[in-house]
Deep mutational scan, measured.
Amino acid sequence: DVEPGKFYKGVVTRIEKYGAFINLNEQVRGLLRPRDMISLRAENLNVGDEIIVQAIDVRPEKREIDFKYIP
């Protein structure tokens, strides 16, 4: 289970104008929005990159997770 405030290692699987999709594993995926990329620009991300993200909002009923990148 993903808990708000905890840090996780994930892999960038898709990049859109509104953010990057980060997979923690095959069943868990969330969104890293540009406003939550402190000191990281979306254009510096590539599909396949491994990054550490913090879960900031977890909505299990919608199967949605928002992440924040903190260097």
Rank of each mutant, 00 (worst) to 15 (best):
L32V: 05
D66M: 12
E16K: 07
V11R: 09
E64I: 11
K62C: 11
Q27H: 15
P34W: 15
I52L: 10
T13K: 03
E26G: 13
V11K: 09
E61Q: 10
R35D: 11
R41D: 10
I51E: 00
D49M: 13
Y18F: 13
G5E: 03
L40W: 07
D36H: 12
I38W: 03
V58P: 03
L45F: 06
D66R: 14
I15Q: 01
I22C: 02
F7S: 06
D66K: 11
D57C: 13
D1Q: 13
G48Q: 01
A42W: 15
Y18K: 07
D66T: 11
I52Q: 04
N44P: 08
P34M: 13
A55D: 01
G19R: 07
D36P: 02
R14K: 10
E61W: 05
F67S: 02
Y8D: 00
I70F: 11
F21Y: 14
L32T: 02
G5M: 05
I65D: 05
D57R: 15
Y18Q: 07
L32P: 03
K6I: 07
L40F: 07
A42D: 07
Q54I: 11
Q54R: 04
L32E: 03
V12Y: 00
R41V: 12
P34E: 12
E64V: 08
R35F: 06
I56T: 08
V12M: 01
E26W: 14
R29I: 13
V12F: 01
P4S: 09
A55G: 02
M37L: 08
I70T: 10
A20P: 01
I38A: 11
E43D: 14
G19M: 09
I65L: 06
R59L: 04
D57P: 03
F21V: 13
Y8L: 02
G48F: 02
G5T: 03
I56R: 05
D66A: 08
N23G: 06
I22S: 00
I38N: 12
T13L: 02
P4G: 05
T13D: 03
R33I: 11
E64M: 10
E3I: 15
P60F: 09
T13M: 06
P60K: 09
D1R: 14
N23D: 11
E43W: 11
P60L: 09
G5Q: 03
R35E: 12
I65K: 03
G5A: 02
M37A: 06
D36S: 05
V11G: 00
L24Q: 00
G10P: 00
I38Y: 07
K62P: 05
N25D: 08
R41K: 15
P71D: 12
P71L: 08
R29W: 13
E3Q: 14
N23A: 15
A20G: 01
R14C: 06
V47F: 02
E3C: 11
V2D: 02
R63G: 15
T13G: 04
R41P: 10
G10A: 11
A55N: 01
D36V: 06
A20K: 01
F21M: 08
R41E: 10
E64L: 13
D57N: 15
V47N: 01
G10Q: 00
G10E: 01
I52R: 05
R63K: 14
D66F: 15
Y8R: 01
F7R: 05
R29G: 14
G19L: 09
P4Y: 07
N25E: 05
G5R: 03
I56F: 07
R59P: 02
I70N: 09
I22V: 11
L45Q: 00
V47Q: 02
G19Y: 10
D57W: 07
K9D: 02
D49T: 05
D36N: 13
K17V: 11
Y8S: 00
I51S: 00
I65V: 09
D1M: 14
D57A: 15
A20Y: 12
R35L: 09
F21T: 08
V12W: 00
D66I: 15
N25C: 12
R59D: 07
I15L: 09
V47C: 04
L40T: 08
R41F: 10
Y69E: 11
V12E: 00
G48V: 00
P60R: 09
N46R: 15
L45E: 00
R35N: 09
D1G: 13
D57F: 10
F21E: 05
E64A: 05
V2E: 02
G19C: 10
L31G: 02
E26S: 14
I65G: 04
R59A: 04
G30L: 06
I15S: 01
D36E: 05
V2K: 03
P4D: 05
L24V: 10
R29P: 05
N23E: 14
N46V: 12
N46C: 15
E3P: 05
G10V: 09
V28E: 04
K6Y: 08
Y69V: 07
D1C: 15
N44M: 14
T13N: 02
M37G: 07
K68L: 11
P60G: 08
G5C: 12
L45W: 04
E61T: 08
E61N: 12
V28Y: 08
E61S: 11
P71N: 09
P71K: 11
I70M: 10
